[in-house]
Amino acid sequence: MLDQVFALTYLPIGRKAQVIKVGTEGLIRNRLLDLGFVPSAIVEAIRKSPAGDPIAYRIRGAVIALRSEESRQIQVRVVD
């Protein structure tokens, strides 16, 4: 279970995971890379918007909110 790779969207709040793969193409992908979502980076799900989406993640010291459309493209594995 812990070794499973799944989309970042499904990472429970408060848990940390490691980025395995960024699956999108083009500008979206470059933007996510620039924000620090590169393979092996550690990302933590911080909080959900009261409406359920977007979700805020701590990545490399900053808190960045992503819509599910984007976070679905990032494959992660739980580390903590």
């Binding site: 500008l27 979206i28 924000l35 977007p54 900053a62 960045i64 909110a65 992503l66 984007e70």
Partner: peptide, 9 residues
């Protein structure tokens, strides 16, 4: 829709 990334500083 374009990418949505929003920093919460």
């Amino acid at each position: 829709p374009s990418t949505f990334t929003l920093e919460l500083p």
